[in-house]
Design a protein around this nucleic acid. Sequence first.
DNA 1: CTTCATATTGATAATCAATATCATGTATAA
DNA 2: TTATACATGATATTGATTATCAATATGAAG
Lengths: 157, 157
Amino acid sequence: MILIINMKNMDLRDELAVLEDYLRDHDLKMTKPRQTVLETFLAIEKHVTAEELYNAVHASDPSVGQATVFRTIRLLEEAGLARSACRDDGARSYEHAYRHAHHDHLRCVECGAIVEFSDGAIERAQASVYRRFGYEPSGHHLELEGLCPSCRAKKRA
Amino acid sequence: MILIINMKNMDLRDELAVLEDYLRDHDLKMTKPRQTVLETFLAIEKHVTAEELYNAVHASDPSVGQATVFRTIRLLEEAGLARSACRDDGARSYEHAYRHAHHDHLRCVECGAIVEFSDGAIERAQASVYRRFGYEPSGHHLELEGLCPSCRAKKRA
DNA sequence: CTTCATATTGATAATCAATATCATGTATAA
DNA sequence: TTATACATGATATTGATTATCAATATGAAG
């Protein structure tokens, strides 16, 4: 395990370097499929399931198999580059995690539209719950569900 | 669809009656397997997966099949008697919903211990998020993860 | 540049939760 | 009781994910 000494350079390192570091620190190897999966993932600026990611990867390199995409997205998660978003429809979906601030999701139950938001009051209230029960925070999942403005309008019509 | 007129009696009706009403209102039938599944579910005062519930049901009546348990727990959910809790381990788990106030969960990532809590500040902050984006609330899932006091102590040792 | 131990790959099979199918059984209203 | 629509259990099927495995590629050492 290599300690990162030069903290002020962290923000300059791009995601590829983050993955390379993670691989090096775990005696894993950088390969073409892994690079392709990472690049494809980064090019998609929304939530993706492993299968959607596979389709996109397959478009640019048909030789990459499904198993590798599943394996690699988990790798990206461990490396801190991806984060598992929601998983309500059956399949897990992922979003960018590196240099993307924490946020929660507000989803329309009708059309599936997703708003990403961050709310200080919620975060503070959560912190107080942790304190109340003596737990040390390590993460949380919050998903609000509702009817978005346009679906509300449609429903009234 | 029968409207419930006598609201003040609602709290006296037990869960069996709730199910019977739901069945009647939807032209479904009360059967022995459904009753067994409901009774077994009510006897378990913690989160259960469909499979755990099936095992318990099977103990008291081996003739009930898995499919019926899956079907019935969904039915209980629709009838407002069960509510889907977390689903982090792969399988969905359910908890009692009737006459059990809404609450969120705080789970220990180490030992799996679950604290059920309800926090007014969180609820109010969520309501304000809904207002901010013009969404009409329909439900939410909040799960806090952390290290419980005893696991923190173990870790320090 | 070659060697070599070890990690990685793609294809495929396997797993796991959940659902669909279907012939048979059962509840309930007339 | 009798008709009819719903419910059942056994089984097959789906869909997402993971495990297996022989073949291949990586990267450190020589």
